[in-house]
Nucleic acid binder design. Structure first.
Lengths: 232, 232
DNA sequence: CGGCTCCTTGATCAAGGTCAAGACATGTGG
DNA sequence: CCACATGTCTTGACCTTGATCAAGGAGCCG
């Protein structure tokens, strides 16, 4: 019925930890026979703001940044996508051009689901649409939080907030290093500030023994203090 | 079957221009017999950030601001709700405390729909959940746009953007005055800045013949220039 | 009238943006 | 393996934006 090609350790046909687990077997069959697997290098653009959505992407491996670019070319990172996240569904559902772009930060494996298939699942399967309502409401809550953070907080507090978001999304390894490695510029583009300012603020946090810096890796030394800063 | 009490010119039981038009007749009956009508003065708080959601509110008359407050008491306005909008659904669906507060800007009439009823509609009626997915995706798109605006734009550009949002949501009267009247402080709380800064920037826009100011009323003189500023 | 609330303006100052220059790291082709 | 190029990080100096403080004016209402 289905073969399982070997993409590293990844089982492309396993949707247990994704929103597609709410599909009925019949729909899973449709899904299996319509998906397309994409193996991408790092720094590959998956879709671009303004273009027409062809479908949604399920992340199987790797991390992507979801961002917007203003017309001076400066980019702003809205969020990241990690394995088992789906991206691009907002535009598919609204049937509008993508309002963001997506780019791989590291080599990635994506599963592409055509828009028509995705929409038909929504129409046929109420449990599935219900879960998608929940998902988009969750993202909406996060976006609203982010709006307030940007509007009311100081640079340092916003940086703390961003580090916490990264911590909650990607966790830390056994040595307390964040499991995502970003350039200073990427961090600046999340916080909405200049690279130099981020460097100075990171140095501040290090001086206060809240974090430690080893190359691009960031080590969380004092989560409590970081949370206090972020919750300011 | 249903009586139609007279709340001004408002037909409380008419849901034609709201998301409830997707309910089947049987569900409308349930809705009619479970709603509660609230007539509120201006500056009344409908729900508060952090409290448990009891249900959703349909705006029948008036304008409300949806905002968050930080712990220094400074508020940030996320958006406004106007007649036929529903508010509070995000928290009901996520079953989380409200992440925002809602307050009337003028005397208002709201229809309260208990959470359990609202959720049951979602579970029973796929068309209804589909529409709600669309609604939350639309709000998500707007939120993402707002995030980028706040992060990348100058004060003046953000003000232009906010004026455009107001224009698109509330329109203008025959003399080109915005159909919503806000205090300078409210505008500042949308843009995420200080009241004084807004006053200075409004004066700037007036000097450039882009807007005119008559008391609290704002007149749009040059929509093109305003859009160019906002789209910067 | 007096007491609100809201608007406005000026002066001052700090946060953070910008520019410039150099250090360090990484990768690539010869 | 080296030489060079490119990308990233860091620091210092300077300057702009917009936040804050202070004071006064305008409008409104009981």
């Amino acid at each position: 019925m289905k073969e399982t090609p070997n993409h590293g350790q990844i089982d492309i046909y396993n949707f247990d930890d994704t929103i597609f687990k709410y599909l009925i077997n019949e729909q899973l069959e449709v899904l299996w026979s319509n998906i397309e697997v994409l193996e991408l290098d790092k720094n590959i653009v998956v879709y671009t703001e303004g273009s027409r959505p062809k479908g949604v992407y399920l992340v199987k491996k790797g991390i992507l940044k979801i961002y917007k670019t203003n017309n001076e070319g400066k980019e702003h990172i809205i969020r990241f996508a990690k394995p088992n996240d789906i991206i691009g569904f907002r535009s598919v559902i609204s049937d509008e051009p993508y309002c963001t772009s997506a780019k791989t930060l590291e080599p990635a494996v994506l599963v592409f689901v055509p828009a028509s298939i995705f929409i038909s699942f929504l129409k046929e399967n109420n449990l599935f649409s219900l879960q998608l309502v929940k998902l988009s409401c969750k993202e909406l809550g996060e976006s609203n939080q982010f709006i307030t953070d940007l509007a009311l907080k100081s640079l340092k507090e916003r940086l703390a907030e961003v580090l916490l978001i990264l911590y909650n999304n990607f966790g830390t390894d056994k040595d307390n290093f964040l499991r995502i490695t970003l350039t200073r510029e990427d961090i600046a583009n999340m916080v909405g500030t200049a690279t130099e300012s981020i460097i100075r603020q990171l140095a501040e946090l290090k001086k206060e023994n809240i974090i430690d810096l080893v190359g691009k890796k960031i080590k969380i030394l004092d989560l409590k203090k970081l949370e206090n800063l972020g919750k300011q």
